[in-house]
C-alpha cells in the first residue's frame, strides 16, 4: 500500500510543478498580451483553473506527507499510547473524508446514468438536471467537466494515501515501533 502511495505521490509532485508553472506562465502571458493590446480572453480563467488543480493535487500530496496544519495543542502533551491512538483516529478521519469525497464525486459524475443514456450528454442532463457535463467556463472555450476531474482524482488519491497512513500507523501501534514523523513544510 505504501509503495502505491509513494508512486502516486511522485506523480503528484510532477503534476504540481506543472500546475504552478502554468499559473506563473499564464499570468505572465496575460500581462504580455494585454500590453500589446492583444488580450487573450481565456488566460485569467485558465490560470485560475491551474491554481485549483495545484490546490487539490497539492492537498492530496499533503495527506501523503502528513504535512498539514492541525491543532496539536491538546494531543502533544499526551502519553505516547494516547497520542498514537489520536494519530490513528485522525488517520481514520482523513480516510473518512476521502471516502466521503469519493461517494460525492461518484454521485456527481453519475457514470451509471451516463452509460444508461448511451453517453448522450443532453439526455443525461434531462434525466436528473445534473449540469456537470453541460457546465461551461465563462471564457475558456471548453466544457468544464475535464477541469472538474481533479475532484475525483483528489478523492481517490486522498483515500489511497490515508489508507496507507492508517495501515502504517496501525502496524506501528501493534509492533510498538516509532511512528513515522509528521513532515513540516519544507520551505
Amino acid at each position: 500500500m505504501r509503495r502505491i502511495s509513494l508512486a502516486v505521490a511522485a506523480l503528484e509532485k510532477g503534476a504540481l510543478v506543472i500546475c504552478m508553472a502554468l499559473v506563473l506562465g499564464l499570468v505572465l502571458l496575460n500581462v504580455v498580451t494585454r500590453s500589446i493590446n492583444y488580450s487573450l480572453f481565456w488566460v485569467d480563467e485558465a490560470a485560475v483553473f491551474a491554481m485549483v488543480w495545484a490546490c487539490f493535487i497539492g492537498a492530496s500530496l499533503l495527506v501523503h506527507q502528513r504535512m498539514d496544519f492541525a491543532v496539536t495543542l491538546l494531543t502533544d502533551p499526551l502519553p505516547d499510547r494516547l497520542r498514537h491512538a489520536a494519530r490513528v483516529v485522525v488517520d481514520a478521519l482523513v480516510l473518512g473524508f476521502g471516502v466521503l469525497m469519493v461517494v460525492l464525486c461518484w454521485w456527481w459524475f453519475d457514470l451509471p446514468t451516463l452509460v444508461a443514456q448511451n453517453w448522450n450528454l443532453q439526455a443525461f442532463f434531462e434525466v436528473n438536471y445534473n449540469g456537470i457535463y453541460m457546465d461551461r467556463p465563462t471564457t475558456v472555450n471548453l466544457p468544464k467537466w475535464p477541469f472538474f476531474l481533479v475532484m475525483p482524482w483528489f478523492a481517490l488519491t486522498t483515500t489511497l494515501h490515508a489508507t496507507a497512513n492508517l495501515l502504517e500507523d496501525l502496524a506501528a501501534m501493534r509492533s510498538g515501533e516509532a511512528f513515522a514523523e509528521r513532515q513540516e513544510a519544507e520551505v
Partner: peptide, 26 residues
Amino acid sequence: RGKKVRITPAAPTRDFFNLIGMAPTP
C-alpha cells in the same frame, strides 16, 4: 481602435468589441 475595454464575459459581448477593433478584457 486597439483600446482595451472592460466587458462582462459573454461571447456576444466579446465578439461585438472585437468587431469594432477594441480589445475586450474581462
